[in-house]
Amino acid sequence: MGFEKFLFYVFALILIFAAVRVITVRNSVHAALFLVLAFFTSAALWLLIEAEFLAITMVLVYVGAVMVLFLFVVMMLDLNTQPLREGFIKYLPVGATVAVIIVIEMVLALGSGYFSSESYSLVARSADYSNTKELGSVLYTFYVYPFEIASVILLVAIIAAISLTLRRREGTKSQNPSHQVLVSRDDRIRLVNVPAEKKH
């Protein structure tokens, strides 16, 4: 067993462990942190197959941005998970049966050897091969249409987020920087003539 294969199994085991913990721990902050671990190890798996761009993007975007936001939300909201657990035992037999059937089917379909490493071996590349550059060169040429649609989806997401959350309420004490800048000395300072106290 080569060192690479050994690394793969180490990372794969950590990944599975972290993924299982995400849905089994009670504390939602812990769950989010286990998700970070899962993202990290899957990035490591990508590094092993020399997809370094995807690995770095995974860490930057998911761990760096998405999960930090997630943690913020989880910590800010005081979620009561008790109602969510209601009926868990009641629905467990049905859910478990369906899950087991699906798992068996998936194993039968996917374990048929179609995706085995023999039929999908890694293509060997030279050391100066940059898959970032390769991705960029197809992303903006052959995939320009999907790429543009993705940008429109992001635009719609911005519009949706703003239109759903932006409210101008009366009486909020928010700051208006342009008003603050325009303030002159006379608006704020009033000179009061205070007569000096007499000496006793």
């Binding site: 649609i149 949706a160 759903l164």
Partner: peptide
């Protein structure tokens, strides 16, 4: 004409619809 544009078109429509349903906040 590709599964990629199928998925992206569907997401663009769905995302607009989600926001529209909540338009009366």
């Amino acid at each position: 004409h590709s599964l990629l544009s199928v998925y992206l078109g569907l997401e663009l429509l769905s995302l607009s619809l989600y926001a529209l349903v909540a338009v009366d906040r």
